[in-house]
Design a protein around this nucleic acid. Sequence first.
DNA 1: TCAAAAGTGTTCGCTATACACCCATGG
DNA 2: CCATGGGTGTATAGCGAACACTTTTGA
Lengths: 262, 262
Amino acid sequence: MGPEGIHPDLRDVLRKSNIDLSVITGKTAGVEVMNGYWYKYPHAALTTDCVIFGYDRTGLSVLLVERGIEPYKGSWAFPGGFLRMDETSEECARRELKEETGLDAAFMEQFHTFTKTDRDPRERVVTIAYFALVNKADVKGGDDAADARWFPVDDLPPLAFDHIDIFQHAMQSLREKIHFEPIGFELLPEEFTMSELQSLYEAILDVEFDRRNFYRKMLSLELLDVVDDGIVRNSPRIAIKYRFNKAKYDEMKEKHKFRLEF
Amino acid sequence: MGPEGIHPDLRDVLRKSNIDLSVITGKTAGVEVMNGYWYKYPHAALTTDCVIFGYDRTGLSVLLVERGIEPYKGSWAFPGGFLRMDETSEECARRELKEETGLDAAFMEQFHTFTKTDRDPRERVVTIAYFALVNKADVKGGDDAADARWFPVDDLPPLAFDHIDIFQHAMQSLREKIHFEPIGFELLPEEFTMSELQSLYEAILDVEFDRRNFYRKMLSLELLDVVDDGIVRNSPRIAIKYRFNKAKYDEMKEKHKFRLEF
DNA sequence: TCAAAAGTGTTCGCTATACACCCATGG
DNA sequence: CCATGGGTGTATAGCGAACACTTTTGA
């Protein structure tokens, strides 16, 4: 949209503001002018939201922040915010996550973009949603965001906007994803026992596995290294600790297409 | 953003244009003014693109349109366009598809949103991408869009923007999806033979199946109805025609979680 | 006449599943 | 002292993978 596409009144304003018209020529939209931005066609606002999954022995949880302002003041929502012009959506999601919760997520993946026209009462907002997996133990108590809290996935408070849809979609994506990739380890401490790993899978997939079959299946994948902690394991009550061997996984992924198949 | 957030010059323009300032009060963005739209913060443009897969005996193809304007004039691109304020992204994708190719796709699914900051040289554009499955036989020759053409997936022309990324992502999503849902049938005529179905799966997954094992596996799913065409099938050379039983599939999906597992 | 297409069988081996056993700890 | 948690063993059924046979068409 060259200057000819601009309303005459606006052109006058530009002149009065000492803005060189030539900067507009050849640009189709997003003219920065008058303490704001002007576009020929309406633009929806773009945000990212992040569903952060955490896990401990009590089960699978998600991290929510309490809204301090209207709309939905007092409701809980997934951390997120507006996309800046110089960042990708993943960068945005990571930045917002850091700002609002102090977290760095190792694993983060885009899973869906929500576009219903009435998602936000203020204006048209389109949200690119991510889910992240973090080790709850890494989250220091007394966070930057005092209003951020973990909620068990089967006992969520009322959520703002359409965040309940976002949550359900995230849960579904997590379940599908874990069938093909060993992402569950991101939710555990670096060293974990086999029963911890099993409980995690059962929590995510909402099923139960036979303990012994799970044990062998996991070991047969050859992705776990035994941690040599020097403990003389003459007692069956002291569980062996394992560590996920990511390098080995990446290598296997290169070769034959890999399937977890749970 | 109430009027106090507006640059004084803009306020003057509004007054001169007889626009009631009260319409702005309480709105945070998207003020319609001066032959365009004004926002306090910069907004990316939102588009949808659609990767349309078609299939016939020659293999798997995608539908591309030739760009008539810069940038990338003369390159090929997936059909798509800008999101309107009153439609969801899926509605947008379907509308654009209809406009540019005359097609109605039965199956259409969002698979990824592309957000790199330099995707379009003109302005920041974020694209919500869909893939669609259509029966190529349904596409009448001599389309509305004379510049739309099918290309085999393994012999694509140079693509505009980052559409090669979009294509690869779409291909990957299609492959993953077909493991869990019987979406392949959307690409075939209503009635098809077993070897047609097998060829389709082989084209999508880029593998080869044993004819007889494929045959039995498909039948064991109990999702195919035999078409009674009255032909006395004393000859093995006349293949049985099948029809996909969608109702049965939906029913099965309700009950036990369903897996195609190819 | 013979290669190709299409329907039907059969065998083999892997693995998912189910269940049994042992052993040391700790309440 | 015995229920609990943790490591290991084993039998079976089902399914995926590989391959054999038959029939008839059409080049």
